[in-house]
Design a binder for these strands. Sequence first.
DNA 1: ATCATTTTTGTACAGGCAGTATAATGAATC
DNA 2: GATTCATTATACTGCCTGTACAAAAATGAT
Lengths: 300, 300
Amino acid sequence: MTDRKQLVVNKAHQLFMEKGFQATSIQDIIDFSGISKGTFYNYFSSKNELLMAIFTSLHQRIDEERNRLLVGQDPSDLEIFIKQLEMHMEFNRRNKLFTLFEEVFISNDPALKQFLERIQILYIRWIYNRFVDIFGKIKQPFLLDCAIMFTGMLHHNIHFHFLANQMDGNIKKVIRYTVHRIEKMVDEIEISGDQLLKPSILEKWLPDCYTSREALEKKLSGIVLALKKCLTDNKEQLKYLELLDFIQDEIIQAKPPRKYLVQSALFTLGNNQEENWKVELRKLEEIIGEFFSKKENDES
Amino acid sequence: MTDRKQLVVNKAHQLFMEKGFQATSIQDIIDFSGISKGTFYNYFSSKNELLMAIFTSLHQRIDEERNRLLVGQDPSDLEIFIKQLEMHMEFNRRNKLFTLFEEVFISNDPALKQFLERIQILYIRWIYNRFVDIFGKIKQPFLLDCAIMFTGMLHHNIHFHFLANQMDGNIKKVIRYTVHRIEKMVDEIEISGDQLLKPSILEKWLPDCYTSREALEKKLSGIVLALKKCLTDNKEQLKYLELLDFIQDEIIQAKPPRKYLVQSALFTLGNNQEENWKVELRKLEEIIGEFFSKKENDES
DNA sequence: ATCATTTTTGTACAGGCAGTATAATGAATC
DNA sequence: GATTCATTATACTGCCTGTACAAAAATGAT
């Protein structure tokens, strides 16, 4: 994405935050960004497409931050989860994402509609996966229901919390409150055995072409980031940096990745003996392994 | 509201359900309703105002239905509450109210925004009041939080339920599931003693000029309806009908009601000795008493 | 039945927006 | 220096909202 295009995205986001999405005309965006109409339509085919670019951009940033908080931590630690939620909610508040999302949530444009639905499901799935980390695999059958209810509770609680205390209340209390509730509810549901939705439906909702691709890319970049953090500025370690970048590019590129080259690079990465490094490297090996086995399955 | 005006409301609702709110232009509504542009703007000053008329109309119908289900029943009976929810959700589904509401939930028009917020809060308050009926006054301090979380959970559950089973799943299961969850949660929260919002904030959210008026009118019509149902077609009992209608009109009229006339009418209503009648009559006396004492407070 | 008042209609108009088309301008590349 | 490409300015179509107003129709009172 060009700098110029990104500038338009940022300027538009700014206008949407100030005036709302519907109330902002393309003309406004053009004037505010200092570009011509032709350029705008060169970048985006419509206001909706621009909106999607905004969401994508913000979504990526959230995801990076979330992964950063998890790096080198115990994924079953509830406090980490709470920290992630706090970051996410604070981010949403700062960027008026709640408002923006709600304003366009139901749209006539099927493309936008589908796009937003996907974002929402990705969000639910993230919660679900974290719940599996936290509450354990035994409770997995109930955790999709819990993830759905949790997001409903949390967003409603935050909504009315803001209605009550104009912005100056602390969200943290609300998050902790809601997390406490879901903790107890998980136990209760396991005892009752009730289930509404099977977690396997997530795979149906997120077609493989999307999930494996995008989720993989995100996981990948998260782990690579974590690995890079382990590196010092040693000459020795610069080669690891190169290898990491190579692997990430090779997988993300649309062209068929050269499997054995990647594996060889992975093997070399194993030479680094740092503690955190090894943990993260194992994750990297795991998802790359999954990636290739899935790929070969698809081809056969 | 004229028949003609109501016709436009219905026709517009039909179009909104088919094509969505945003995608329907005023011209569409005019053509579909067979009226002229002048007439439209005679009835409504904008599309938003028409939308509010639709919501008001549907909201009234929901409220009537809800009260009808409660008439002569034990308000603490959970099964009645579930029936009310089933009716409401089924009504929403039939009239695509979920969609419509979501589509316009965030609006640039401050009037519409406020209107919708009020509807939402009225809904929360209804749930809250029913929770007080069901779970008892002891748990009152926690029940606003519970009402908020319950609506969040329910709507999210229903949303994803529809996503999973295209319309053909039964909502009833989802409702029961969610009600079960909140039942347990109420107990859990009471033990923990956590509270986010004090129920008294409801009065702040719904300014008196609205609450006392509208809530009163609704309660009133509900109780009067219940009382009318107790009546048979006896000549004897026709006078009660007259008295009931008189009281209702006198209170709802904007002009200052004649207090002593109303009280006398109430006294006469006490002559009927039926069992259900007496229960409902006591409620009637109670809210009318509240109404007058509040009124005198305001005037002093 | 007649007259006055209100409602409705048809039509025209101003102003705004989305999206397209195109010729002119500018800058970087080869 | 020529070519290519993104960018600009501008004009244009078509659709929409909201206003205005005079003619026609319906309503209601006498």
